[in-house]
Nucleic acid binder design. Structure first.
Lengths: 209, 209
DNA sequence: CAAAATGTGAGTAATATTTTCATATTCTGT
DNA sequence: ACAGAATATGAAAATATTACTCACATTTTG
């Protein structure tokens, strides 16, 4: 999955050394993501997470000093996943249209496992660090990938205006996926193809509005 | 099919009769909207609402039997506003491009007062009735307006496919606005014009992707 | 001016949730 | 095999939160 890095305020109370504890921590993170996704921040309790993970609360507090550090870990994990997906697709070196289709489909897939997670992490859940901040490293890197995608799609050098374009696309895709998930339509092929069309047409230059 | 059904639980404990109490109720609703917008469902407490409204909790409970009925009232109020905006624009009978621009700008404006409200009401806050349901009367009416807008823009009879188009547009607009608000960019003219461009290009037929 | 409407806010009652810790179990290196 | 380290447990202490009431004050109405 992802490498976890030490922070000023130690993210982890204790580093899991054996395979068993590493698995426990992983399970806790997954369960936490599921609880956040299904119940939102208001329904996120350490006991629920432990229950769903099938471990005792004690185990949870063995590794995370408090609730907040657990959310931080979940967020870190999720954002790492997002960036990793982006990097992989970019590395494929696809043709423009395939590229867009790939990104859209990857984003849909990423939201399929825990439909509400992204939104909850960005909008609801408090944070000790600054990942919520619009100028956070994550947001910047994330949007930079989109901006890069724009220049790739248009087959030319990166451009300052690409960043606004990237913002619009990223947020529009987010909105369609989020609401589709809310309506239970994330699997609808019509939604998927129309979303791709939305992005493609917006990216196509030439025809003036 | 059922239209609107009378609620078992009365929305209001007591109907405000004098001007003073009507103003109190209005203030409470506004304060409630502000609290929901700023703090989300998790931070929504009756005492906070009363404080912000500048009235005592007692007054709040004079009109609303419980917290849930207050949220319901706030939601009802907000959704009525949304539909009312839509109706007014439709009534203007504008030309296609002006029409799109108007809707987008109206939606941006609607989100400007309480940036997080719409999302919180749809995603976070629980509901005694079925406004959260994707097949609720509100959703259907709301999307119907968008679908209608599509057929107006394309200057032809309404079409079954318009509904998917409407869904995509509605949700994309929602996503861009919501995230722009989160980033404090709701006033950015570049965002506004690009959002209009996104919608217009998607609606333009002819050029095949 | 009496009665009805409205407003007050400290306090209660109930609930919920985080976090600990004494103890039990499992693993690792030798 | 064994000691010490790592890991796991979960009842319950400690803490926090907050929805909602009620006895009483103030304002409005007719």
């Amino acid at each position: 999955m992802s490498t976890r890095i030490a922070k000023q305020k130690p993210m982890m109370r204790k580093e899991p050394r054996q395979a068993r504890s590493r698995a426990t921590v992983e399970t806790i993170i997954q369960a936490g993501a599921r609880v956040l996704s299904r119940e939102g921040w208001a329904g996120f309790t350490t006991n629920k997470v432990a229950d769903l993970a099938g471990v005792s609360v004690g185990s949870l507090y063995q590794y995370y000093p408090d609730k907040l550090s657990l959310v931080d870990a979940i967020r870190q994990n999720h954002l790492d996943d997002c960036l990793s997906i982006m990097r992989k697709i970019k590395a494929k070196g696809l043709a423009p249209m395939q590229f867009v289709a790939n990104i859209v489909q990857a984003m849909i897939e990423a939201h399929s496992t825990y439909p509400g997670l992204h939104r909850v992490l960005l909008d609801e859940a408090p944070s000790s660090d600054d990942y919520r901040n619009p100028n956070s490293g994550f947001e910047i890197e994330y949007l930079a990938y989109y901006a890069d995608a724009v220049s790739i799609y248009r087959n030319r050098q990166p451009n300052k205006a690409d960043h606004i374009t990237a913002l619009i696309i990223s947020d529009a895709v987010d909105g369609v996926i989020h609401n589709a998930a809310r309506r239970g339509l994330l699997d609808d092929p019509a939604i998927q193809s129309e979303l791709i069309r939305l992005v493609s047409k917006y990216l196509d230059e030439g025809v003036n509005p």
